[in-house]
Each structure stands twice: as structure tokens, then as C-alpha cells.
């Protein structure tokens, strides 16, 4: 199989996943969404009628008024296409098409900081913050991890190797959010160094906004790094140890090449494919985990938006956020796949 064909196949699968996730989400929230939209349509009309004094005066009895309103509601529901059940193919198709074209509609309760209730605006406002936090964390974690992993791999069974492995296993057993709660407890209340809530307290237009954002980002960032770099170092160490046992490394050693150079330039280069892949995967994984982490730290990103949308059942936001999260997740999975296929031709053949 050529690389192109491999790419096309992966892309098709990814698109299939995106559609399947979307369909699943719509199926799961569809019936709720239906009753909510119908209610809001009815409320809308009632409000319109009651605010129109001359129209209100033309009714003699309340029954007349009620039947008029009911008729209007029915017309509105038909106009919106809500008379069909939510699982009818047209409606599902229409909602999928709308979502694909990034038309998520309007949020029921949530608004962006600037006051817009358009789901697209809300997401566009939150997404960069999530990317800022988690990309920075992943970058720091991977640099630390690769360095520490290389050191551990060069001295297998030494003290530093054992400490790294032990720390990796122990740190990965603790839930990130629990460490987050603990960090807030220690560094925001016991020793008030950092703010407890990660939401910046100045408005986005303020010149000090970026500084405030970074200051508020410190605690979640430190937590993510502490929890993350151990398992990274462990993975890198394992890959490197595997590579260091290969014949070509032996040959280089026999040729008298400096041990440091073998490790950092030759071995690391050969261990790169899985490392790069895991880098891409861990980025996507952290986006999913962002929901709980951001909820704990009150970081105003996608994760917290998702959590808030769930708690008030703001369905358009839930669907929009699921779509964007899934899309990001898939893009990074795809990038990981492609990188792996590029580095390691065996994968393409399967």
C-alpha cells in the first residue's frame, strides 16, 4: 500500500468517526433537545402575543386567546420542522449538515464573555485558552520527559533510573484533578502564592490581561507538568533502552563513538517515531481530560464550558463543544497516525 492510499484510508476512517460521534450525540440528546425547542417556541409566541396590546384586546374570552396561541405555536413548530420527530432522517440530516458547516445555533443559557450567545462565538473564545494551557503543558512535559528519559536510559538500573520509573508509576496512579484539588489547597490557601480560581480577574481588553492570564495559568500548568512528565520519561526510557540494545548501536560503540553522542543523536533519532506519535496522542488525550482539570481549576476554556453546558443542559453548546473536541481529537490522532506511517513503513502494510 502506498503512502497516499494509506493517508486516504485513514482520512476516510476519521471522517467516519466524526460522523458517528456526531450522530451518537444527536441521538442521545435529540429527544431532550426537541422538547426544549418546542417549549421555547411556545414561550416565544406567548410573549409576543401578550406584549402586543391591540392584539390582546381583540380577544373576548381566554379560550379564544388560548386557541389562537396554540395555532400560532403549531405553525411555528411546523415552520421550524419540529413537527417531525427528532429521529426522522430529514431532521438528523439537517442538523448534521448544520453542524458540519459550523452552524451550531444559539446557546440557551450560556454566553461568551463579550455577551454573545452564538455557540460559535462562545467556542471561539474558549478554545484558544484550552490550547494555550494544554499545549504549553505538553511542550514542557515532553522536553522534561525526553531529557529525563534519556538520562535514565543511559544508566539502566541506576538510582536515577529507579526513581524515574517509580515516580512515573506512582504519579500516573493519582487522578490529575485530585492533585489539582490538593495543589489548590496547598498553594492557594495554605500558602497563598497562586490564585485559587484560574479565571483571570481583569477584562480581556485590559492591557494587563495577558499577564493576568499567565499568572492564573501557573497552578494548572504546574499540576499538569508534575503529573505528566514522569510517565513521559518512563516511556522515552523504555523506547531508548530498546534502541540501545540494537546491533547498530553496538557497532557504533565498537567504533568508539562517544556514549553521549550515541544516546542523544543516534538512539534518540531512532526512537523518534513512537515518541512523536505519543506526543500527538497525548495532546489529544489531554483535551478530553481537560473537562475535569478545567472544572477543578476554573480555567475558562473548552473543558469548563463543556462542564457548565452539561450542568445546565445547554444542548446546542454540548453538541458544538463535542463536535469541536472530537474534531481536534481526530486531527491529532490522524497526525499521529500519519507520522507513524511516515516514520515506520511497516504500519502502512499492516
Amino acid at each position: 500500500m502506498g503512502f497516499k492510499k494509506f493517508l486516504v484510508k485513514r482520512a476516510i476512517t476519521m471522517f467516519g468517526v466524526l460522523m458517528a460521534t456526531l450522530l451518537l450525540t444527536i441521538v442521545l440528546v435529540g429527544s431532550n433537545m426537541d422538547s426544549i425547542s418546542k417549549q421555547s417556541a411556545a414561550q416565544d409566541i406567548r410573549q409576543q402575543v401578550t406584549s402586543n396590546k391591540s392584539l390582546l384586546a381583540s380577544f373576548k374570552t381566554t379560550e379564544q386567546l388560548d386557541s389562537y396561541i396554540n395555532n400560532q405555536v403549531k405553525m411555528r413548530i411546523t415552520a421550524l420542522g419540529l413537527d417531525q420527530p427528532w429521529y426522522s432522517p430529514q431532521r438528523i440530516g439537517l442538523s448534521m449538515y448544520k453542524i458540519l458547516t459550523l452552524d451550531f445555533g444559539h446557546a440557551k443559557f450560556l454566553t461568551s464573555d463579550s455577551g454573545s450567545s452564538d455557540v460559535k462565538d462562545i467556542i471561539l473564545e474558549k478554545l484558544p485558552r484550552t490550547i494555550l494551557l494544554f499545549t504549553t503543558a505538553t511542550a514542557i512535559v515532553s522536553v522534561l520527559g525526553i531529557f529525563l528519559g534519556a538520562v535514565a536510559a543511559s544508566k539502566v538500573n541506576s538510582k536515577i533510573d529507579k526513581i524515574t520509573s517509580g515516580f512515573a508509576i506512582i504519579s500516573s496512579s493519582f487522578p490529575v484533578w485530585w492533585i489539582g484539588v490538593l495543589m489548590i489547597f496547598v498553594f492557594a490557601f495554605l500558602y497563598p502564592i497562586f490564585p485559587a480560581r484560574a479565571t483571570p480577574d481583569v477584562s480581556a481588553s485590559d492591557p494587563g490581561y495577558l499577564g493576568s492570564l499567565l499568572y492564573h495559568m501557573a497552578l494548572p500548568l504546574i499540576t499538569l507538568v508534575i503529573i505528566g512528565f514522569g510517565s513521559w520519561a518512563y516511556l522515552v526510557r523504555n523506547f531508548l533502552v530498546g534502541v540501545l540494545q540494537e546491533d547498530f548501536i553496538m557497532a557504533k560503540r565498537a567504533a568508539g563513538i562517544d556514549e553521549k553522542r550515541i544516546l542523544y543523536s543516534h538512539a534518540l533519532k531512532n526512537a523518534a517515531p513512537p515518541i512523536v506519535t505519543i506526543l500527538a496522542l497525548s495532546l489529544s488525550g489531554s483535551l478530553g481530560g481537560a473537562i475535569i482539570t478545567e472544572a477543578v481549576f476554573d480555567w475558562p476554556g473548552m473543558g469548563r464550558l463543556y462542564f457548565e453546558a452539561i450542568s445546565v443542559l445547554d444542548l446546542p453548546v454540548i453538541i458544538g463543544a463535542t463536535y469541536v473536541l472530537t474534531a481536534f481529537f481526530l486531527v491529532s490522532v490522524f497526525v499521529a497516525d500519519v507520522l507513524y506511517g511516515y516514520f515506520d513503513p511497516r504500519v502502512r502494510r499492516q
Binding site: M14, T21, L287, G288, G289, Y306, T326, F329, L330
Partner: peptide, 8 residues
């Protein structure tokens, strides 16, 4: 495999 587990 590629579905985001936690949101779902």
C-alpha cells in the same frame, strides 16, 4: 478507538 471517551 478514535472516539473521545470522556465527553461521550
Amino acid at each position: 478507538y478514535a472516539m473521545p471517551a470522556l465527553p461521550l
